[in-house]
Design a protein around this nucleic acid. Structure first.
Length: 313
DNA sequence: AACAGGATCAACCGCCCCTGT
DNA sequence: AACAGGGGCGGTTGATCCTGT
């Protein structure tokens, strides 16, 4: 792809930003918004490439950036989120408002990674260095992987929502112009302020300890009462199991996934999952390990929900 | 005081994805 | 369907600061 010719490249300034450049960029964005980053430098009178301007703005000049030391709460959130998401810094940053992905990445690479290593934990896998198969740690790692699958699904849903909201904005604009004339378009639906369909983790938390089976996971927890309840909930909210009831755990798992899919799609109320779970746990026989996992995820969810004001929760 | 090595962090680079044509 | 351009992301670099000797 042709980006720019060499001559143009030679004129662009690189390296640290000066106060004067910062002021120019700030003043321009405050007055006009950033618009097209590519076109911005010329308009703002900067000898920088658009990319450099964008980076400077998003990582440093933006007014809603919190700088300075990370709190222990934030540290824990980063560690847990990294266990879930890996090096997906932008996804991690969405759970830590006012922190940039670059800042989080730097903090991880320069401090947290080393700290975990010193503690004998592999920062890549979040597992203890010596890790006998079948141990609680390896099972927890599998749970982490499982959660990562869900987080991936959630992020995809978020991306879809962004696309839809863009479309919605266009529709609203069209409708706005159309109201002056005979109505050509129906009024657009009201935009949801809080997309409940994105709250997979919240649904997870609401269930407060459902079994962590999945069609792709090798985990096999006994006493799985959630799947059936969730499947019922899923059926009520849109998903209808092919054969009515479940013949095996795989079917239950599928239903669980479809239920969560319905939550993701917004066709199912996460609280319904919750109540069904609570109602059915009396017959369960959770293991100690399961309690550990439950506590682990509760702790994580508490970390990423309340104190750091995640926009998702 | 001078130096070396480590730590930190802003900024860059290259790649990829999405969107518009 | 193919292509170009814009924007975003993660990895890496290099300048600067800090600390220990």
């Amino acid at each position: 792809m042709v980006r720019s010719n060499g001559h143009e490249k030679m004129e662009l300034k690189k390296g640290p930003w000066t106060r004067d450049e910062d002021q120019k960029l700030l003043a321009y964005i405050e007055e006009h918004g950033h618009g097209s980053w590519r076109a911005l430098p010329a308009k703002a009178g900067l000898q920088r490439c658009g990319k450099s301007c964008r980076l400077r703005w998003t990582n440093y000049l933006r007014p809603d950036i919190k700088r300075g030391k990370f709190s222990s709460q934030e540290e824990k959130a980063i560690i847990r989120l990294h266990a879930l998401l890996g090096n997906r810094w932008s996804a991690i940053a969405t759970h830590l408002p006012k922190r940039t992905d670059n800042e989080i990445k730097n903090y991880w690479n320069t401090r947290l990674k080393k700290r975990l290593t010193r503690m004998g934990i592999d920062p890549a896998t979040h597992k203890p260095k010596e890790n006998p198969a079948g141990s609680a740690q390896s099972r927890q790692a599998a749970v982490v992987s499982h959660m990562a699958q869900w987080e991936t699904a959630r992020l995809e849903a978020e991306a879809r929502l962004v696309r839809e909201s863009r479309l919605l904005s266009k529709l609203q604009l069209l409708h706005k112009t159309a109201v002056q004339q005979p109505p050509l378009l129906p009024p657009p639906p009201a935009a949801a302020t809080t997309p409940a369909c994105l709250d997979v983790l919240k649904a997870w938390q609401a269930c407060n300890g459902f079994a962590l089976d999945s069609p792709t996971s090798t985990l096999n927890f006994s006493g799985n009462s959630f799947a059936g309840a969730a499947a019922d909930a899923g059926k009520v909210n849109g998903y209808v199991p092919e054969k009515g009831r479940f013949e095996d755990s795989a079917q239950e798992n599928s239903c669980f996934y479809y239920s969560m899919h319905n939550v993701l799609e917004g066709s199912m109320d996460p609280t319904l999952l919750s109540s069904d779970c609570y109602n059915s746990t009396s017959t369960s026989s959770y293991t100690g390990e399961f309690e550990d996992n439950k506590n682990y995820w509760n702790e994580l969810l508490n970390l990423v929900s309340s104190p750091v004001e995640s926009p998702v929760f």
